[in-house]
Every structure is written in structure tokens, then in C-alpha cells.
Nucleic acid binder design. Structure first.
Lengths: 244, 244
DNA sequence: TTAGTTCTGGTCAAAGTGACTTTAACTAAT
DNA sequence: ATTAGTTAAAGTCACTTTGACCAGAACTAA
């Protein structure tokens, strides 16, 4: 044990970058939509065979956020529009072998995003048994993750629930145009409770980072809802890094 | 230029930890209180002679937050009660010589804190011409900082102003017992605008993370104000790391 | 005793919130 | 063609919160 600590102290720490990605999916259990995230199965020790967050070493010529994006594309086929830095985890005993400092990013994606559908790379990866989506709060899954990835995911969820600006969250999960009912579904998934549609509509009007368009969404077996557009971006540049 | 990039890519990145510390001080210019922070003068290249945030390399046996605290104690004599992780900066060109990934912490301290007064170490450092306090938004100072420390400080200020829980901010800047007027001064310094004392009092009552005591503060030439106590701590553990 | 200062509680109109009702506009079944 | 079913969207009403302002309370200093 002592030898282990001493050994770790002597070697240079490894710099890694990992990513937590949330998406909105139907949840057959509750009937509502809820948050899901992709995990990759580890193919080598330590924690071989267990599920882990997608991640890898810092690219020597890549920025932090580019490292995250590149690794994400290669392992899961996902290309989020922008990533946000979550936290740097650097405790001594995160990895059993040597010291790893992980800078963790997180993002919200919609699965029907242009980048993420119908591409050859993606459809290949969809069949990859080493990549899969899980409910973000499934205790069964969280309990068996590699490293300290359980703590990381729980912190990401906490951050999501404590975000001030919910409008941008909805925008990122839904895309350019969306109905108010869809925005409400996002809020309900994040807050995990039902909301009154009429009051919700009124409150979004005053919140004002959402703007109505002249378009409507037809096709449902009910009155067609108006489509809206996000007009916000009050976040700090460092908190919504674009991918180059 | 190309050679420089290639050279940087070959060598392992350096892991450093820096800290932004804010304190509340009287501002003779505006008459109100405002935010100040300590800087240290660089004694070697690059940026020799210019002011910079206190910081240093990751201690091989120290956690991230301990590295920040140790370096802070050694260079400025300050011992904040807890630090909060701000952001990891890792762009290629942050330092002209080689690639540096800096994990930056931030904290709020009160200058009359037990840890920070009347200790031998501190009084020595007070005379150190290479450590000084500056107004956090002084454009003159910000323009001449080493590395990208200007961006870092501006982001720290942005984060402070966008904090949801202001009660804890006041607590950290003021200590265990404080008057409502002092809390209001904190809000006014952070938000940079005057607030109505009567309405401010009423709102803090409903916010409820502040509790009145039976003590009063006498000595002023006016009615002695009641002292209050903070009863909050709704923040996530990762966002208020204790120093070991 | 009086003037000066801040503390602290109060009023009042305006704005916002939560629970609920009503009407509008579509689809699908009869 | 009519009707039932569904969700959209607007409105009502009691209640709470907010911002601006006023007035008395409690101390110090002259």
C-alpha cells in the first residue's frame, strides 16, 4: 500500500479528458421522458469489461474540448454541437495503477441531430455491443461503473438540475424549432415532476429567451402547436465551448 | 512558429494549480465596498516582473485543492477555509515556453479571519513587496497580468456574479456573525448597485438560509443592529472543498 | 436635550404564481 | 357529416412576492 502511494507520486500524472452526455428518451417505466447517457465498455485493465464514460488521454496538439470531442466521435459516433466543462477530478486514488487527472466535459444532445443520424460511422457504432445507452439515474448501472465515474455522473446530474438557465438546456436537447410541450417535457425530465401546461406557457413568455415563430407542427391528432425558437445565449463563453 | 508548436506537442504538458481569492475592502473611490484580490510578482521568466495569480505545479502527493492551499499559504500567507474549483485552462498557447494545463481554484476570504491575522508568517508576508492587493476590476492591473490570468480573473468575477446562492458568499466573506447591513454590502459590492435596506431585510427572511441571533453589535453611532448567522450549505460537496 | 445616523417594521400598488376553467383546432372513428 | 378524443392556448381568481416609500425606534455625539 505504501509502495503503491510512493510509486504513484514518483511518476508523472496522466492527463485524461472524459465526457458525460445526456439525451432525452422515452422512459417506458414512468411513461414520461427521462435523461439517458451513453457508456462504453472497457476493453482492458483496470476495470476490464465494466462500463465507463467515454474518454482518453489529452491529445498533444488538441485543446481540452477538442480532445473530448474527438474521443467522443471515435468511441460513440456522437458529435455534440458544443461541450461544457464540468470539473477536474484529481484525487490520488482514482485509478488503481497510476495517478490520473481527468478533466470532464458534459453536453446535451438530441438524438435526431443532423450530425448523429444516418451517417455511416454512426450506424456502424449503433451495432457495437461495447457502446450502449442507460438511464442516467439507474442505480443498478451506477453501482457498477469503472473508476469514480459514478461520482462524476451524479455530479453532472446535480449541475444539470441546478442550472439557472433552463431555456438553453431545452434548446440543446431539442434543436432549432420546438413546441412548448417539448420544452415542458425537458423541464419535467430534469426536475422529475409534472408541470401545469397553461402556467408553464405563461412563465416562458416572461422568461423571454424563447420566441414564437409563424410555423406550426401538424401531424398529431390534435390542434397543431406553434413552433418556437431559442434566442438566449446569456451563458459565459467558457461555459459553452464550440467544437472546432 | 511551427517549430514552437511542434516542440510543445512533443513535451508532456505541465499540470499547475492557481487560485483567485476575493476579499471585501473599502473602496475610497466609490465610497462603497468592493472586491479585491491578491497577486504575486513573477520572479522569473516568462513574464518576469509582472503580476500573476498565486500558483504552482501540482504536488505529486497532494490533491488538487491541497496543492492550491499549500501554494497560497507559502506565497501569500493566506489560509482560506475552503476553496472551490473554478475551471481548467488548457489551451496550447497559454504559456510561451511549453504547454501548461492550469486547474484554477477560487475562494472568498475575510481579512479579519483568525487564520489570516497576527500570525508571524502573515506579518512577514505583509511587507513582501512581491505580494499586493488590487481591485478586482481595475483595468490598469488586468491589462498587464502574466499569461492569460486576465481571462481567468474575469471569468471568476462572472461566476461570482452569477452564483445562485448569495447567502453563502456573504457568509464566507464576513465570518460567523454578521449584520444584515454587512450582507447587503456584500450584495452591493458583487452586483455593483445600491439596494433598499428595508426590502433587502424582508427578502432575506424568506430566503431562510440566514438566522437571527440574540446578539447585537454596539459601537456605531446609531441603533445597534442585530447579528445573524448562516445556516445554509445547500451547495454540492465538490463545490466547497475543505482543506485538509 | 437635540441633531444625526442607521435599524426595523409597516403600507400600498404592481407584478407574478398556482390551481383551475373554457374555448380552439386538429384527427380518427362512427 | 357528425361526434368523440386529444392537445393547444387563453382566461379567471385568490394568493404571494416585489419595489418604492414612510415612520418610528434606538443608539452616539455635540
Amino acid at each position: 500500500m505504501f509502495a503503491n502511494v510512493a510509486e504513484r507520486a514518483e511518476r508523472q500524472p496522466v492527463l485524461a479528458v472524459s465526457t458525460v452526455i445526456f439525451s432525452l428518451r422515452d422512459d417506458e417505466r414512468t411513461g414520461r421522458k427521462s435523461l439517458w447517457l451513453p457508456l462504453v465498455r472497457r476493453t482492458r485493465e483496470p476495470f476490464r469489461g465494466q462500463w465507463a464514460l467515454p474518454g482518453g488521454p489529452l491529445g498533444p496538439r488538441d485543446s481540452l474540448v477538442d480532445t473530448a470531442a474527438n474521443n467522443l466521435r471515435d468511441t460513440t459516433g456522437l458529435v455534440p454541437r458544443y461541450l461544457e466543462q464540468l470539473y477536474a477530478f484529481g484525487d490520488m486514488d482514482r485509478s488503481p495503477t497510476r495517478r490520473v487527472v481527468s478533466i470532464v466535459y458534459w453536453a446535451l444532445v438530441r438524438e435526431d441531430d443532423d450530425h448523429n443520424t444516418a451517417t455511416a460511422a454512426n450506424s456502424e457504432l449503433l451495432d457495437d455491443p461495447n457502446v450502449a445507452w442507460f438511464r442516467a439515474d439507474d442505480p443498478e448501472v451506477l453501482a457498477n461503473l469503472a473508476f469514480d465515474h459514478r461520482d462524476i455522473i451524479e455530479y453532472a446530474l446535480w449541475r444539470l438540475r441546478n442550472k439557472v438557465e433552463y431555456g438553453s438546456i431545452a434548446h440543446r436537447l431539442l434543436g432549432e424549432r420546438f413546441t412548448l410541450a417539448q420544452v415542458r417535457e425537458v423541464y419535467e425530465a430534469v426536475l422529475d415532476k409534472a408541470l401545469d401546461p397553461a402556467n408553464f406557457r405563461r412563465q416562458l413568455r416572461t422568461a423571454a429567451n424563447i420566441e414564437e415563430t409563424d410555423e406550426f407542427l401538424s401531424g398529431g391528432k390534435h390542434r397543431p402547436p406553434r413552433l418556437y425558437r431559442y434566442t438566449g445565449s446569456t451563458t459565459h463563453p467558457l461555459e459553452s465551448e464550440n467544437i472546432s
